[in-house]
């Protein structure tokens, strides 16, 4: 018994000696690049991330400095990141939709050129309609076979457009795609009766759903959302279309050729961030997000699945 304890103690001592010598520590401020302008979803993600790291003292002396590099719906930031190849002091907070765009629109620099670090949240998508427009999701799918039902969306070649293409392909519907300038415009058009259904994140539709003007028909997530407002909404998977799965996923990338030690360091740091109460409360819960955490390997795998299995649908559709 005594021996075992000694053994354990030695092991513990050894471990504590080894762990501070983690091969990598950022030796300067870490730039957190946001590929869109201040105020958007990626910006909020990055700023909350930096704030939690600072206020919870997760990275002692290192400052995490958020910089916006908007333009080309992410192309500018990706192009900039390739000029920083091998830089271990830089992170990019990108939405998976922008990675999808890099393939669907065939940019020079693609999402897979970067170093995957983590996936930290999912913003689910819901198919919504005015309250009395359709009885349920099945009714909407049935009605959409005729080709007269319009589908409002806010970003071409992005994750919500992907959700639309997957729905039309696997549910064999014929929704008509209508492109708007932002989700606020889609909601205006839905309320004004200019489109029949729209695709929204929970935060974008919550106010209307609470007021009873709009109902969520079905969710594009694999599992139902754990929330009183959206918990009763079936997923397309439950409705018999397991391939109709899409969400706006918040991804953290590094520039190309980031060192493995650095990746391990950030993976560990972001894992700690995701576990804090502040992250869970102030970011995930308040913004109606679904909590997920994937490490570097899982993130790489997830991106690969989306790029190889889902993105080719853009080409099929002729975009």
């Amino acid at each position: 018994m005594k021996r075992t304890l000694t053994c354990l103690a030695t092991l513990g001592l050894a471990a504590s000696l080894v762990s501070p010598a983690l091969a990598f520590e950022p030796d300067q401020d870490v730039d957190v690049i946001v590929p869109s302008s201040a105020g958007g979803g990626s910006d909020l993600f990055a700023r909350t991330l930096a704030d939690v790291i600072r206020s919870e003292n997760l990275a002692e002396d290192t400052n995490y400095v958020v910089t916006n590099r908007p333009g080309g719906s992410g192309a500018v930031a990706l192009a900039y990141a390739t000029t920083q190849t091998g830089n271990n002091d830089m992170l990019i907070t990108i939405a998976i939709g922008q990675i999808i765009s890099s393939y669907a629109l065939d940019w020079d620099i693609k999402g897979a050129d970067m170093t995957p670090i983590a996936i930290m949240a999912n913003d689910d998508f819901f198919l919504c309609a005015l309250t009395d427009r359709f009885e349920n999701a099945e009714a909407a799918i049935e009605a959409a076979k005729s080709g007269d039902i319009t589908f409002g969306s806010s970003q071409k070649a992005n994750s919500d457009h992907l959700a639309y293409l997957l729905l039309n392909k696997y549910a064999e519907t014929n929704f008509k795609y209508v492109q708007f300038g932002g989700s606020g415009e889609v909601m205006s058009a839905l309320l004004g009766g200019h489109v029949d259904v729209g695709i929204f994140n929970p935060g974008e539709a919550r106010g209307q759903i609470a007021a009873g003007t709009v109902v969520p028909l079905a969710s594009f997530s694999a599992e139902r959302m754990d929330s009183p407002m959206f918990g009763d909404t079936p997923t397309f998977t439950e409705l018999g279309y397991p391939d109709v799965v899409a969400a706006e996923t918040r991804v953290v990338l590094g520039p190309p050729e980031m060192d493995d030690d650095a990746v391990a360091y950030y993976e560990d740091l972001l894992g700690k961030v995701a576990e804090t109460d502040r992250w869970q409360q102030d970011y995930i819960a308040r913004n109606n997000l679904s909590p997920v955490f994937m490490d570097s390997a899982a993130t790489e795998e997830h991106l690969k699945t989306v790029i190889e299995k889902r993105v080719p649908i853009f080409e099929e559709s002729g975009l």
């Binding site: 105020g39 606020g184 909601m187 106010g207 209307q208 609470a210 007021a211 102030d282």
Partner: peptide, 26 residues
């Protein structure tokens, strides 16, 4: 209605949510 008419009001809408309010008809 809880609908932003432009970029600046869209950011304010985000603010409403962060302060724990539900922007919308109610």
């Amino acid at each position: 209605l809880g609908i932003p008419g432009g970029g600046t009001t869209a950011v304010l809408l985000g603010g409403l949510m962060m302060w724990g309010l539900t922007p919308g008809p109610l």
